[in-house]
Computed example of a mutant assay.
Amino acid sequence: MSAISHEFDLSEATMLPPADPGPRAVPEIEALAARWEAVHEAAAAVGKLAQLGRETLTEDIASLPLRAAARGGWHYEMVARGIDDLAAVMQPGLRALLSLTAGGQDTTAAALTLWREFHMARTAILGLVPVE
């Protein structure tokens, strides 16, 4: 019996070893903390537009950059990437809301939607380095 050959046939493939990532960069705690704070400032503005007010940050939320840096490795890298991704969503969203507000339009519903998206994403990021 002969095997059927198709595009997913890996029987003769050469498997390469994982690439050596080399030495990891030292976590940039200050830069990560500044980005985390900036994302929360944007969220505060969105909360105001959603008529929710400013959220008080708990120590568990505020200390994420320190916990990620202490954990290091892929935990730090994923937290940093998550914060950058969250900032990439918040910046144009807030810009759009402010533009609509400047035009005299009610942005409450749209701001509430962005605020909820922020909280869901933040919960996922916080889950990468849980408080011990």
Rank of each mutant, 00 (worst) to 15 (best):
M78Y: 13
R81A: 14
G82D: 03
A70V: 09
D84Y: 00
E59N: 04
R54D: 01
G73T: 05
L66G: 11
G47W: 02
Y76C: 07
L66D: 12
P65K: 00
I83L: 14
A69C: 09
R67H: 07
L66S: 12
W74N: 06
L64M: 08
R54I: 02
G82Y: 10
H75F: 12
G53E: 03
A68C: 12
R54H: 05
D84E: 15
G53D: 04
A69L: 11
R71P: 03
R67A: 08
V79I: 15
L49R: 12
R67P: 08
L66A: 14
L52A: 12
K48T: 11
G82H: 08
G47A: 05
G72I: 11
L66M: 11
H75W: 07
G53L: 10
A68T: 04
R71G: 00
R71Q: 15
L57H: 06
A70G: 09
Q51K: 09
G53W: 12
Q51G: 03
T56L: 10
G82W: 11
G82M: 10
Y76E: 02
Q51M: 03
V79P: 00
T56S: 04
Y76M: 04
G73M: 01
L64N: 01
A80S: 12
D84R: 10
A69N: 05
G47K: 01
E77S: 14
R81V: 04
P65S: 05
W74I: 12
G72K: 11
A69H: 04
Y76K: 04
A45W: 05
T56G: 05
L66F: 12
Q51E: 13
L49W: 14
Y76V: 08
A80E: 11
R54L: 02
W74K: 03
L57W: 06
L52F: 13
I61A: 10
R67W: 08
M78C: 13
G82C: 13
D84Q: 13
S63R: 14
R67Y: 09
A62H: 12
E55N: 06
A50L: 05
Y76Q: 03
A70L: 10
M78S: 14
R71T: 15
V79T: 06
I83A: 15
V46D: 00
A80P: 00
W74Q: 07
M78A: 15
L52R: 13
I61N: 01
T58F: 02
V79C: 15
L57Y: 03
A80T: 07
A68N: 00
L57Q: 13
R71A: 15
Q51V: 05
E59M: 01
G82S: 10
E77C: 04
D60L: 11
G73Y: 03
R71C: 09
H75V: 15
V46Y: 02
Y76G: 02
G73S: 09
G72H: 06
A50R: 02
V46W: 01
R81K: 13
I61Y: 09
G72T: 15
E77H: 01
G82N: 03
M78D: 14
